[in-house]
Structures are given as C-alpha cells and as structure tokens.
C-alpha cells in the first residue's frame, strides 16, 4: 500500500483523528493522541507498517512533538512518520505504544528520561540512562546547562576520610 493510500485509509477509519499532513522530506501525518493505540493497531495490521523503527520527542517552543518512524518489512519502502502534538508542556501525556510494538519499550523510557513526557500504560516507565533523582529533563530547551554539584545531582559522596 502506498503512503497516500494509507493516509486515505486512515482518514476513512478515523475521520476526526488525522489533523494535518504537513509537506516535507518525509511522508508525515499528524494525529490526535485520543485513539492512538487503535490507530497504531490499524497501521500495524491493516496498513502493514509493522516495524516501529524510531520513537523520539522534539521540544518546540509551543509544544512537544512525539515522533514515530514506521516501516514495513512486508512491503519495504520509505519512512511513514506519525506525529502527535502535546501543547500542554507542563503535564504532557500520550498513550504508550508498547502494547502494539515492544520496540517502544526502551525508547519511551528514554523519552520520559530526557523530556518528562509521560507514556500512559507503559509497563515500567522509569528513567533509562540517567539515575533516579536527576534534577529535571536534560534535552528540554528550558534545562539550564551548567555544572552541577554532587548534592544537586542526588548523589552523595562518602566522608572525606573514607574516599
């Protein structure tokens, strides 16, 4: 199925969910987060886009964008990009894709770690690369990039004479 046909199919199956089809280098579809899991199941099983390759977040000034790069191992072709906009940056929530694609497991944990976006329904949403107690989410644009002391990082040094 070509990507144009997939888009038409999506619009027919989820009439109010596809909000935008921005023109760019990669074929992109912007959808609402409300029925995301059904939409992913549709893409995986009906549109044969069965391979979630990449999942990441972009911090725009006005919103978070969760980006999914999908491929097909059955009918190989160029990338199909699904985006979800999250305008509420203070409490950004999006349904987890792990029930559909297990490949999202580590990538969603990383996105949570780096941006603080919460993936609802993720089986174990904890920090992946940084440690528990790290202040803030470093890939956000409002993260202050400076040197941190050990105490601020939630780490404790042993007393001077025991090092």
């Amino acid at each position: 199925m070509s990507h144009d046909a997939t888009l038409a199919d999506l619009q027919a199956a989820f009439p109010d969910q596809v909000v935008e089809h921005p023109q760019g280098l990669d074929f992109t579809v912007v959808v609402l987060p409300d029925r995301l899991r059904e939409l992913f199941l549709h893409l995986r099983d009906k549109a044969k886009l069965n391979y979630l390759s990449n999942l990441t977040v972009v911090d725009r000034p006005e919103r978070f964008e969760v980006v999914y790069h999908l491929y097909s191992t059955i009918e190989p072709g160029p990338v199909f990009v699904v985006k979800v906009y999250l305008p509420d940056k203070e409490s950004a929530h999006v349904p987890s894709a792990v029930p559909v694609w297990q490949s999202a497991y580590y990538q969603e944990r990383e996105a949570f770690d780096m941006f603080g976006v919460v993936f609802d329904g993720h089986p174990g949403l904890t920090r992946l690369l940084l440690w528990e107690g790290f202040p803030g989410h470093p890939l956000r644009k409002d993260f202050v990039n400076r040197t941190y002391s050990f105490d601020e990082m939630g780490q404790t040094l042993p007393p001077e004479d025991q090092r």
């Binding site: 280098l25 990669d26 390759s53 990449n54 972009v58 980006v67 790069h69 990338v79």
Partner: peptide
Amino acid sequence: GEAYGHIESPKGDLGFYIV
C-alpha cells in the same frame, strides 16, 4: 526542516533524526 536518514550499519538499522 527535518529529515530522517538511516542506513544498514553492521549491527542493523542506524538512523539519525535531524531537526
């Protein structure tokens, strides 16, 4: 703009997403 480029690296699908 933004672009996603990926290749078949020795270990598999290696991609770079640049905004």
